[in-house]
Nucleic acid binder design. Structure first.
Lengths: 203, 203
DNA sequence: GTCTATAGGTAGATAGAC
DNA sequence: GTCTATCTACCTATAGAC
């Protein structure tokens, strides 16, 4: 799967290094080493560290936002939507376990300006369709009277947190990487049931 | 509330800068400026950047672990424990909103060695009492048959994630700092109900 | 396009005067 | 204890040969 073009190999190497170290601790030299090319070439393709980082970050962020928005806006019943959100969202993270922490960390450390730039991009997350749908179900009395904003936050929290807090979790639970992955796999069913039970009315 | 001793003012300044920028992006010069002292003094009190950072991080981590462990091990019924955990844990974070993201970010970026050191410390988080208690309730048939490890993860996720993902959340929901804080305050009740409803048996 | 060499700037840390 | 001055190392970025 190694990229063939130099530009592609640089981007792939940058992904690795930026995700592991974060922007501030990442070194252009290390990216060049991982890519197996000379440091000067990084500046030939991407003028400076910031632009290289932005290329990596934007791609990572959009992958998440796009997938999420597709599910948020899908025209299916709420319970099905919750199930597909949890399952599909956790699948993306399982394929790319360090991506969520990377995005969150950088949003926390870069300044407000950076965050504003991201949030004004075309592919920003837009949970409004889901929030509206939850509200409708509440008003129709078909689920418990939950606050729709908090409800959406709950869904995100339950899916994403275990990946973001992975080092802490593995440290506490004393599990190796393979076990951790299996736990995340089984978590899809567990979280779906948890959410559905929380909002289902007693029949 | 300004610290009187020089050492105290250094530590307070280091807290501010490290929490906002993270270890790698934090500058000793900025810490000195915030503390209103000379850069050389930082090295007089704390030999180097690493030691100063460790002083800040350890204190932050232990504050969280200690409070959590107290609740985890309390000898009270599960439903009360959930309620007090959510309420008290979110209170700590409300008093110190950038602390959870700081701890998580650094655990993600520093190497395995660092994480191992933290997790072997005396005051590491120990959720075993809570996990055992959940398991007992399940076996006794008093709550739904949830997986106790995931259940504990759910509690942590619902409380901590909104603070860790705060920039993203505020960006998406377009809310200012004051509104955000009010939302987190109301979230205590919302999350408690959410969890209890998820595990309560239909009577 | 890709390399070598190096400029230019900055960070952490130390030495030594007061 | 606190400051000034400075050393050394490293990092980003550029210039220029091939």
């Amino acid at each position: 799967m190694t990229e063939q073009t130099t530009e592609g190999r640089i981007l792939e190497a940058a992904r690795q290094v930026f995700m592991r170290k974060g922007f501030a601790a990442a070194r252009m030299q290390e990216i060049a080493d991982v890519a197996g090319i000379n440091k000067g070439l990084l500046h030939y393709y991407y003028r400076n560290k910031n632009k290289l980082f932005k290329a990596v970050f934007d791609e990572a962020f959009e992958r998440f936002a796009l997938q999420a928005n597709t599910i948020f806006a899908a025209d299916i019943p709420l319970f099905e939507k919750i199930e597909s959100f949890v399952s599909e969202y956790m699948d993306i993270m399982l394929e790319n376990p360090s991506l969520p922490a990377f995005v969150i960390n950088e949003l926390n450390q870069k300044g407000e300006e950076f965050v504003r730039g991201i949030m004004n991009s075309k592919h920003r997350p837009n949970p409004l369709p889901l929030i509206g749908q939850i509200q409708l179900e509440v008003e129709a009395g078909r689920i418990r009277p939950v606050n729709s904003l908090h409800m959406m936050l709950n869904m995100l929290s339950l899916c994403a947190f275990p990946f973001i807090a992975r080092p802490m979790f593995q440290g506490i639970a004393q599990v190796d990487d393979a076990t951790y992955m299996k736990l995340m796999e089984s978590r899809k069913r567990e979280v779906t049931d948890f959410i559905l039970n929380a909002i289902r009315l007693n029949q």
